[in-house]
Amino acid sequence: MKLYQLHTKQRLPISKKEAWDFFSAPQNLKVITPDYMGFHILSGAGTPMFPGQIIEYIVTPVLGIKSKWVTEITHVKENDYFVDEQRFGPYSLWHHKHFLKEIDGGVEMEDLVHYKLPFGFLGQMVHPFLVKPKLNEIFEYRREKLIELFGKL
């Protein structure tokens, strides 16, 4: 199975603390996720983020097919980074690192996602025209939404 990577960076004109407060609150994921994905948290988002936290949600990524997604917050260094890993869901592997770095005039937010697709060779075949473009679209929506919410640096 092939391991894929998605890497993004974005600069925002907000403090590192403000960025942390927003990104470490699981309920804000809905705010930066396209509406058509039907994102809905089922459980696990009612407390501040901590290692071992399990968050369950429903998402409709493609063709109106609902999927249950369960992630675990595996690492947290307050105000610096956190890691979420899929435990159950549409990917064979999903490991998402979120980093925050203070810069002149604001904060740089960095996402690094490593993922594997199910279905072996078939998964690899659909990656370039279905999965990769969809992930790029979702992260572009996030970028635009964050500019709308916080401005551009």
Rank of each mutant, 00 (worst) to 15 (best):
L3N: 10
L6I: 14
T8I: 15
T8K: 03
K9S: 14
K9I: 13
K9Y: 10
L12W: 13
P13M: 12
P13I: 08
K17F: 09
W20Q: 02
F23D: 08
A25T: 10
P26R: 01
P26L: 04
Q27A: 15
K30I: 04
T33E: 03
T33S: 09
Y36P: 01
F39A: 08
S43G: 01
G44C: 11
G44I: 14
M49W: 10
I55D: 10
I55Q: 07
Y57V: 02
I58A: 04
V59C: 05
V59G: 00
T60R: 00
P61Q: 12
P61E: 15
I65D: 07
K66D: 11
S67T: 11
W69T: 06
V70C: 00
E72C: 06
I73R: 13
V76Q: 09
V76D: 08
E78W: 04
Y81L: 15
V83W: 00
F88A: 11
F88Q: 12
F88T: 15
Y91A: 02
L93T: 09
H95Q: 07
H95I: 10
K97E: 09
H98P: 05
E102I: 06
E108R: 05
D111I: 03
H114F: 09
Y115T: 13
K116D: 09
K116S: 09
L117M: 01
P118V: 01
F119P: 14
G120T: 15
G120I: 12
F121R: 14
F121E: 08
L122D: 10
Q124P: 01
L130R: 00
L135S: 01
N136D: 10
E137Q: 04
R143P: 02
K145C: 05
L146M: 07
I147P: 00
G151E: 07
